[in-house]
Amino acid sequence: MRILYASHWFLPYSLAIVNALAKNHEVCLVTTHRALRSVDPDRARELLDPAIRVEIEPDTRERQTQPPGYYVASLRSLRRLIREFRPDVVHVQETTDPMLAWVWLRALSGTSLPLVVTVHDPEPHLGDTHKFWWVRQRMIQSIRRRADQVVALAEYNRQALLAMHEFLTPDRVGLAYHPVMEFYREFVPPEAKRRPGTILFFGRMVKYKGLDTLIEAWETIRASNPDARLIVAGRGPDLPQYLPVLEADDRVEVYATFLPNGEVARLFTEAEVVVLPYREATQSGVLATALAFGSACVTTDVGGLGEMVEQGKSALLVPPGDPKAVADAVLSVLEDGTLRERLEAGARGRAAGPLSGAQVAAQLEEIYQRAISAKSQAN
């Protein structure tokens, strides 16, 4: 099978998938300089299977939207690539840039190519909307409507998509879980090791991530465990209001900046527990990274997060917006070595099994076949 796979933004999600697909299929990866920077521009090619053909779209801005000329040039190059590569199926990762949806719709117009679209977030997260969000939603709806198969990253998301769009039927929405992000392990510093008492809160600092819940829980954790220390790493609009409190605490470390892969790998290696006190979620790259490192996790049971782990085996699940439950769960992991070892072993099992790149690629292969079959019957 010839697979044209597009990942314009966050390439770490796609690395394990395309590498696994390349073992049995001919894969062409369409990506951007910005996406390559999210991996490591100097090492990106060595992290990809050498059999994968890589086509790089020349984006010029760090933010997702690009100058108008970029989309015109991208449309031309994609049409050329489709003629040259002659894919059996096209797989596009949905992004927040509505113009990319337009580009792909135009590139595929006049063809009978099966289209598969992965939806990472069926709807905007709490705190993620802006005044022009309706434009994005209109374009995103158009590409979802055109897709022969839509991929959801959790059953929760699958049901949300079916409820949102009357034009989607159950046979058109497939399930392929978020794979663990093993590639970060390539960057672990040799001196990095688990640091007792270390709690990690990592990622984009936006309202739905529940930083306020964690700060309230931290008061209890701090008072109960003298060895506990908290690391808050990431940037975003929700962080500045909490910085004075966090920076005043000598047992809290704050990294309010973009971190290179080596630093990300160090933090996850050192953390004794990774905490995700989210108010809502669809899936989580942070959880996928923590599982790749075999980390003990405490996460709220919201959205698709509970599907990525097993309660009491690979993570502890707590209700959202409950600082006491978060504090109790974190303390139990820090203070019960047997529990912590069980969760770490369970995390490694999830990473090697149902959330591995190979397993997710197998799920996608079935979805591709359904898309090809549906398009063939329609034609």
Score class of each variant (00 low, 15 high):
Gly285Tyr: 02
Leu331Gly: 00
Pro277Tyr: 04
Ala292Val: 07
Arg251Met: 07
Leu291Gly: 03
Pro323Glu: 05
Ala271Tyr: 00
Phe258Cys: 01
Val273Met: 14
Val302Ile: 06
Thr300Lys: 04
Asp249Phe: 07
Ala281Pro: 06
Asp301Pro: 08
Ala265Tyr: 09
Ser295Asn: 15
Val302Gly: 08
Val298Thr: 07
Tyr278Ala: 04
Val302Met: 12
Thr269Lys: 13
Gly306His: 06
Gly306Asn: 13
Val254Lys: 08
Glu270Tyr: 00
Ala288Pro: 00
Ala288Ser: 11
Arg279Trp: 09
Glu280Lys: 08
Glu280Gly: 07
Ala325Glu: 09
Ala327Glu: 03
Ala248Met: 10
Asp301Lys: 14
Pro260Thr: 11
Lys313Val: 14
Gly337Leu: 07
Val330Thr: 00
Gly262Tyr: 10
Gln311Asp: 13
Lys313Gly: 04
Ala265Asn: 09
Thr300Val: 08
Val274Ile: 11
Leu267Ile: 03
Pro277Leu: 04
Ala325Pro: 00
Ser295Thr: 10
Val309Gln: 05
Val274Ser: 10
Ser332Ala: 15
Glu307Gly: 12
Thr269Ala: 08
Leu259Val: 06
Val326Cys: 00
Phe268Ala: 06
Leu291Lys: 02
Glu270Met: 02
Arg266Ile: 02
Val326Thr: 08
Val330Asp: 01
Ala327Lys: 04
Val318Ala: 05
Val286Tyr: 04
Leu339Ser: 07
Tyr255Pro: 11
Asp328Asn: 13
Thr257Ala: 14
Gly321Leu: 10
Ala325Asn: 00
Lys324Met: 06
Asp336Cys: 03
Ala265Glu: 03
Val254Leu: 05
Asp322Met: 03
Met308Ile: 01
Val254His: 09
Phe293Val: 01
Lys324Gly: 09
Ala329Asn: 09
Val302Ala: 14
Val333Phe: 08
Phe293Ser: 01
Glu272Ala: 14
Thr300Cys: 03
Ala271Gly: 12
Thr269Cys: 07
Leu259Arg: 00
Pro277Met: 13
Val286Ala: 00
Ser332Cys: 12
Val286Glu: 02
Met308Phe: 04
Val286Gln: 00
Thr282Glu: 08
Glu310Asp: 15
Thr289His: 04
Leu267Asn: 04
Lys313Glu: 15
Val274Gln: 05
Ser284Gln: 10
Ala256His: 14
Leu305Ile: 12
Ala315Val: 13
Leu267Ser: 07
Ala265His: 11
Ser295Arg: 12
